[in-house]
Design a protein around this nucleic acid. Structure first.
Length: 492
RNA sequence: GGGUUGGUAGCUCAAUGGUAGAGCAGUGCCCUUUUAAGGCAUUGGUUCUGGGUUCGAGUCCCAGCCAACCCA
């Protein structure tokens, strides 16, 4: 159903499509055997070698009888780009094929077979003997030099961003490598990857607004999980000593530079360990990722002009400091002040604490603004107030704090780690306090599981999106998600 | 939710309230080793949408949509 006439550019591409069909060639081809991805073809490249490659035409340099084109895919890395030059000449492919070739455009997928040679300018090139049309592109590609600049197009039509912007491809290749390397790291240490429910009758394990859905056959509402924690702990009860889950969580809250409604979280639990052992594990893991994927422990973030805007130093050992000591480093007598005076002092420092109801929230706001946001290099904040963390063990000497760390890097909370609370009676009390009497939010099945005995354990979470931001220098979570959430738009 | 900025050709961007332009892409011609190829010529516009002010609006005003950033 096309009521409006196609623009001239689209009409010309349709005409070429028809011309290819009229010549008896299917413009949307079939299986094509290649010598691998284009990076792999480049690795095999030798003068005189027979080569087969397939990819998208990304550049065309028309020299009259000699035609040079670039064939690309996203396989490139380092000194083996996902791009190879091909040379097409009527004498090599014949007049009939050359007439088909005239109907190709930048953006089309083709397969070629030919022979390797080096041009006068030293470029490895395939001298094409035969080519096959694999997919005609009916829409023009983005600007070859500037790529896609429009953030809306980058996010809504990520494929165009990936085609046109190598720096975006690089970020996503790093993300893929980070996730793969995390799995390998944990599996090497005996952790088992498990899958637990994403649809839960009670959305527990964190304090966040869940997405609601409905199961028709059961006639009941369900929630998309905000955390897998309570199910992973059931596995500790079930006797699995080392488990992890690396998958999506969903939170029905604001969208920002640092928040997407669905985000990827790693949670890992280690029976008989504690939060300090987990901190060591996380420190080792993140340094391993930086060294294997980012080339070292100094991570540079750059702006659009390639100027270094900040440097994050991951050199070990990472600093560890108690929450209360950090607060005292900002306001030495903070803990001697009354709640009312604390509010006043916070406001004097330019903080807006109107949203903070309880006293501990005022302190937490001070922490976030004056410490967390200013911390670039890794800092384990330990012994946080117990009100902030209802699922962790209270400290033996000071029951007002819990045996936890919050790892802050790049001004953001990257990873929490706990000595997990395994006393079912205390756990019930703490959850009841947190729910403020809304007992329907209590996960009774989880509490029952604890009553059968959960081993003391260390647990961690790592926000994978924020970790990738830190390691790749992305300033927005949207730059590390293939398809960040966007409001729907009328489509053509 | 509040504030700021932006939305112009397929893409990247211009345009004191006074005839909507450039580069790339496209089209045509020239060129047998180019690589942001080059040269000559040329096509292409509901200026996000809807109102308003004005002799005249891409530009000013109002409302809306979408996006980015900041704040909560």
């Amino acid at each position: 159903m096309e009521s409006t006439p196609l623009s001239e550019l689209l009409a010309i591409r349709r005409q070429k499509l028809d011309a290819i069909r009229a010549a008896g060639v299917d413009p949307f081809g079939q299986r094509f055997e290649t010598d691998g991805t284009i990076a792999e073809v480049r690795a095999k490249f030798a003068e005189g070698a027979a080569l087969r490659a397939a990819g998208r035409i990304t550049a065309h340099r028309d020299m009259g009888k000699s035609q040079f084109l670039d064939l690309s895919d996203s396989s490139g890395s380092g000194n083996l780009p996902g791009r190879i030059q091909i040379f097409i000449h009527a004498k090599e492919i014949g007049d009939e094929a050359f007439a088909i070739f005239k109907n190709l455009d930048i953006g089309d997928f083709i397969g070629v077979e030919g022979e390797g040679f080096i041009t006068r300018t030293g470029e490895p090139t395939i001298r094409v003997k035969n080519f096959t049309v694999l997919a005609k592109s009916l829409k023009p590609m983005p600007d070859k030099w500037h790529g896609v600049q429009d953030t809306e197009i980058k996010y809504r039509q990520r494929y165009l961003d990936l085609i046109a912007n190598p720096e975006s491809r690089e970020v996503f290749h790093k993300r893929i490598a980070i996730v793969r390397e995390i799995r390998r790291f944990l599996e090497d240490r005996g952790f088992l990857e498990v899958e637990t429910p994403m649809m839960q009758a009670i959305a527990g394990g964190a304090a966040a607004e869940p997405f609601k859905t409905h199961h028709n056959a059961l006639g009941m509402d369900l929630y998309l999980r905000i955390a897998p924690e309570l199910y992973l702990k059931r596995l500790l009860v079930g006797g699995f000593p080392k488990v992890f889950e690396l998958n999506r969580n969903f939170r029905n809250e604001g969208i920002s530079r640092r928040h997407n409604p669905e985000f990827t979280m790693l949670e890992a639990y280690w029976a008989f360990a504690d939060f300090e052992k987990m901190a060591d594990l996380v420190e080792e893991l993140i340094c391993h990722l930086a060294q294997t994927i980012c080339g070292g422990l100094k991570i540079e973030h750059k702006d659009a002009e390639d100027n270094v805007t900040k440097t994050i130093n991951l050199e070990r050992p990472w600093k560890r400091a108690r929450y209360a000591d950090l607060i005292r480093s900002v306001v030495p007598d903070w803990y001697e002040l009354s709640p009312q005076i604390r509010r006043e002092r916070a406001e004097e420092m330019g903080l807006d604490v109107r949203q903070c109801v309880a006293d501990f929230e005022v302190t937490q706001h001070l922490f976030e603004k004056m410490i967390e946001e200013k911390t670039m290099d890794p800092l384990f904040v330990t012994h946080c107030p117990k009100e902030l963390v209802p699922l962790a063990k209270q400290n033996a000497e000071d029951p007002s704090v819990v045996d936890v760390y919050e790892l802050v890097i790049n001004g953001q909370e990257i990873s929490p780690g706990y000595s997990e609370l395994n006393d079912p009676i205390v756990q019930r009390q703490r959850l009841e306090e947190q729910s403020g009497g809304e007992t329907q939010k209590l996960d009774g099945d989880f509490l029952e599981a604890l009553e059968y005995g959960m081993p003391p354990a260390g647990g961690i979470g790592i926000g994978i999106d924020r970790l990738v931001m830190m390691l790749t220098g992305a300033e927005s979570i949207r730059d590390v998600l293939f398809f960040p959430h966007m409001k729907p738009r009328e489509t053509a």
